[in-house]
Amino acid sequence: MRASTFFQKLWRRRIQSPSSISLSKSFCTDNGDGLQSSRVKIFDRHLKRKQRDRAAWLMRPKDSFVDAVAENVLDRLEDCRKSFPTALCLGGSVEPIRRLLRGRGGIEKLIMMDTSYDMLKVCKDAEIDRRDKGIETSFVVGDEEFLPVKESSLDLIISCLGLHWTNDLPGAMIQSRLALKPDGLFLAAILGGETLKLELRIACTVAQMEREGGISPRVSPLAQVRDAGNLLTRAGFTLPGVDVDEYVVKYQSALELIEHLRAMGETNALLQRNKILKRETSLATAAIYDSMFGAEDGTIPATFQVIYMTGWKEHPSQQKAKRRGSATISFNDIQEQFGSGS
Rank of each mutant, 00 (worst) to 15 (best):
V122L: 04
T267E: 03
A286D: 11
K124Y: 05
G325F: 11
R273F: 00
L169N: 11
K9E: 14
I276C: 00
F338V: 02
E266S: 11
L185M: 08
T299R: 05
P301E: 11
D297M: 06
V219M: 01
N31Y: 02
A321T: 15
L35M: 05
I258A: 03
D132H: 07
A3L: 15
G294E: 06
P18D: 14
V122E: 10
I157M: 06
I276D: 04
A302C: 08
T299N: 04
T328Y: 06
D227E: 03
S253I: 13
G325R: 15
R279H: 08
K278P: 09
R201L: 07
S4H: 05
R131W: 05
L161G: 01
E336C: 04
S26V: 15
R211T: 12
D290M: 14
N274S: 06
L163A: 12
L231E: 02
R14S: 12
V225Q: 09
M173P: 03
L154W: 04
A126R: 02
I329T: 15
M113K: 03
T166K: 05
L161V: 05
D125K: 09
I202C: 08
D33I: 15
L10P: 02
L163P: 03
V244R: 15
A287V: 07
Q36W: 05
T299D: 02
A295R: 15
S152T: 13
R262D: 14
Q319A: 08
S291G: 05
L90P: 00
K275D: 00
I135W: 00
V141F: 04
S20D: 10
P96L: 13
I307A: 07
A235H: 01
L10E: 12
F27P: 07
R218H: 03
A327S: 14
N230H: 09
L23W: 14
S38F: 08
A172T: 02
D63T: 15
R52D: 11
D30I: 11
L23C: 11
L178M: 10
I128R: 01
N332S: 09
S93D: 07
S22A: 09
I111M: 03
I329E: 15
I158E: 10
R131G: 08
R45K: 00
N31W: 07
I300A: 01
C80Y: 11
D183S: 06
Q319T: 13
P61A: 13
L222F: 07
T195S: 09
I190H: 11
L35F: 02
S26Y: 04
G192I: 06
Q272A: 05
P170C: 03
S24P: 01
Q252P: 09
D30M: 04
M119E: 11
R76P: 02
D333A: 03
I158L: 14
I135R: 00
L257N: 12
K41G: 05
K9D: 13
E136V: 10
